[in-house]
Amino acid sequence: MIRCLFLFVLLWPSAAQADPVSLKPGEILRGHFVQERFLAGFAQPVRSEGRFVLAPGQGLIWQGDKPFAVLTVITPAGMAQSLGGKETMRLSATKAPFLARLHQVMAGAMAGDWRALDGEFALSRQDDQVTLLPRRPDMAQPVKAIRARIGAFVEEVEVEKPEGDRDHLVFSRQSIDQGPLTTDEAAAFAGLR
C-alpha cells in the first residue's frame, strides 16, 4: 500500500517535463487530493480529500480534511498517523522496513535514478498514461497494478489491489516552491526522528 503510494509520488516531478527530472534539493511540492477507496463488494467508495506536502529528503505529509482530519506523516524514520490531533498509530522503520526504503527509492528516483523502481516494477508509457506492473506477481505484492495520468504534474492515479479493492486519487492545484517548510511541517517531520 505504502509502496504504491510512493511510486506515484515519484511520478509527479518526472511528468512536469519530458524527461524524468527531479525536484531540486530544497524544493517543495504542494497540492490537493481527492481519494476514493473502492472496497470489494461495495459500490459506494470511501471518499476523503485534503492537502499534501512532498519534501525530497524529508518526507511526505498527507493531511485529510474531509470527512475526518486525518494526518499522515511518512519519513525515512517511519510513519505516524493522527485523527483530530490525537495520535492513532506510529510505526518505526524498524518494524516496517519498507518505510525506510520508501525514502531511499524516492530520493533515488528524484535524482533520475530509476533502478530502484526497475527491480520490482515494469514501467510502460503511452501518451500521458503510465502503467506500473509488478515484476513478480506471485509474490505477496500489495499491488496488482498502478495506472497514472500525467499532465503538467501527475493528475490522476489508480491503484489496483489483489483482493479487488481499488484506490482512485485525483490531484489538483499542484505547485512547486523553494521552501522553506512551515514550522508545523518541519515539526511534523522532526516528530518522527
Binding site: 477507496r37 463488494g41 486525518v70 492513532t88
Partner: peptide, 22 residues
C-alpha cells in the same frame, strides 16, 4: 481510540486496511 485508528487507516493514506481485513 481503537475506532479512531481504524478511521484514520481507512481515510488516511498508507493504511494496511483492505475490505477483507476490515
Amino acid at each position: 481510540a481503537l475506532a479512531e485508528r481504524t478511521l484514520s487507516q481507512v481515510f488516511g493514506i498508507g493504511g494496511m486496511a483492505d475490505a477483507r481485513l476490515l
